[in-house]
Each structure stands twice: as C-alpha cells, then as structure tokens.
C-alpha cells in the first residue's frame, strides 16, 4: 500500500517519462524538477535533497529498468517523488539498499555509474522512503520530503 497526497492539498503535479538506456537524456527530469522547485521558492536545502533523490531514481530507471514514469507532487506540507517502472523488478530489496551493491553493466560502470550508492543516497536525502518491487512486474519508489 502507498500513501497518496490528499487531493485537496495538491498544489502541483508534474510527470516525467523516463526512457530506458538513454544516457544522453539521463538527468533531464531531475534537472527540470530542480528548476521547478527553485521557481516555486522552495527552501534551497530541500531543493537539493529532492534533486539528488530524483536524479538517483531517474538514473536507476535509465540503467536498470525498462523505463517508466516519475511523478512529482507538491503539497503545502511535503514534496512526494514517485517513480514507477515497467520492470524487470528488484529481487532482493534489502540487498539493493545496501551501499556498494550494484548489478550495473560494464558499460554503465565505465560511465561512472554502479557505485551502489543511489538508493542509499535517496534514503539519506528523504524523510520517508518506500520501495516495493516484484520480479517480472516492476519497481515502485516513493520518497517524501517534509516542508
């Protein structure tokens, strides 16, 4: 089960399509999120945290998934980042959350990905992290940042 922002409180929703394997576009959604949050006058520290988490979630979709959708919800109380992809899913979430664990390909590693720090970074930056996944179905990540 996932919590959803109370509809009445929703100030703004943005969605970003994330293409699998496209390293050139990778980071674009996170950059757009950062610009948007800045324009909205959100506290700089929170902007930085949300941007880092968005980048790591986006790159995970680019590198490890078949692609998906990232969604940003802004309410007066919190910012919620939701990333849902079409698979292949994560076999062992606890293992995936460990610093240093990575299944990144040689190509991704050559580009500097695959330190196994992305999910730990998201955890560190967010106030609440929910990650669920089913092999063959996909992964759903939800990170909350309290305002």
């Amino acid at each position: 089960m996932t919590e959803s922002a109370n509809n009445e409180d929703l100030v703004m929703v943005q969605t970003y399509e994330i293409e699998a394997g496209n390293f050139t576009l990778a980071g674009e959604a996170a950059s757009n999120i950062k610009k948007l949050l800045r324009q909205l006058g959100i506290d700089a520290k929170i902007v930085r945290k949300v941007s880092i988490a968005a980048y790591e979630a986006e790159l995970n979709m680019v590198i490890h998934s078949l692609g998906g959708i990232m969604r940003l919800e802004i309410t007066p109380k919190e910012i919620v980042l939701k990333a849902r992809d079409d698979g292949p899913g994560i076999e062992d979430i606890e293992l995936a959350m460990q610093e240093g664990y990575s299944t990144a390909t040689e190509l991704a590693r050559e580009l500097g990905f695959g330190a196994g720090m992305g999910l730990p970074n998201i955890k560190r930056c967010s106030d609440k992290l929910h990650l669920q996944s089913k092999l063959g179905q996909g992964t759903y990540l939800e990170a909350r940042f309290f305002l």
Binding site: Y55, E56, L59, G112
Partner: peptide, 29 residues
C-alpha cells in the same frame, strides 16, 4: 557519480576523468 552526488562539494570544484554529459547534470544538481 553517485559518490559525487553524496559527497560532492556545493559551490566547489570537482576533478573527474568522466567526460560524458551526465557530469553536467551531476554538477548542476
């Protein structure tokens, strides 16, 4: 890159051998 995301210095200098476009995304974020 994700180590830099974790420890990279705000308003600082980053020395890296990576040269693909993603380093600019990291630096911006």
């Amino acid at each position: 890159l994700s180590r830099v995301m974790a420890h990279g210095p705000q308003d600082g200098i980053w020395i890296t051998v990576q040269t693909h476009t993603n380093i600019i995304a990291v630096a911006t974020l």
